[in-house]
């Protein structure tokens, strides 16, 4: 089938099959390898991308579902001049990743959270990020990075 959607702000048209997942189309057809695939059963969150602002598991979400929608992946976060998104910068500043495999999913989930709730409490961050699993860094710096990004983005909007 012919799939049309907006990917990281640009309209795209790709040929895909009904059974192909969004992760397969992103990684195999479009060569966007930032979206990681790990558990493949919607548990770990490594493959999180945003569809119309909502986080989904690209590993199990059919590409078909993205028709006519806005898809944002980790590749779509940095600005055209190369400036990192406040979340990406905060993950670096807080040392919130070690191996980095869960990081794109972590950042995309955190982005969805901050878009919905720009000033979340620590408890709200933990509840929202509950479905994103990290197996090496530990969650403390990840939560700290999200808090730091929320603060940075809050200052940005106030300017």
């Amino acid at each position: 089938m012919n799939l049309q959607f907006v990917l990281n702000g640009k309209p795209w048209r790709v040929e895909c099959e009904a059974q192909e997942t969004l992760a397969e189309v992103l990684r195999n057809t479009l060569n966007l390898n930032g979206t990681k695939v790990s558990c493949e059963v919607q548990v770990c969150g490594a493959c999180t991308v945003l569809v119309d602002g909502a986080p989904v598991s690209a590993c199990t979400y059919l590409a078909y579902e993205a028709r006519g929608k806005n898809v944002t992946t980790i590749e779509g976060l940095e600005k055209p001049d190369g400036t990192l998104d406040p979340l990406q910068q905060a993950f670096i500043d807080e040392f919130a990743f070690q191996c980095g495999f869960c990081t794109p999913g972590m950042i995309m989930s955190a982005k969805a959270l901050l878009d919905e709730n720009p000033a979340p409490t620590r408890a709200e961050i933990i509840h929202y990020m509950d479905g994103n699993i990290c197996r090496c860094t530990g969650y403390v710096p990840i939560v700290a990075a999200i808090q730091r990004a929320a603060q940075a983005m809050g200052k940005e909007t106030k300017k």
């Binding site: 969150g45 986080p55 989904v56 509950d130 994103n132």
Partner: peptide, 9 residues
């Protein structure tokens, strides 16, 4: 229910 991604789809 489950996690935020499961709830979205």
């Amino acid at each position: 229910v489950a996690n935020v991604r499961v709830r979205a789809s």
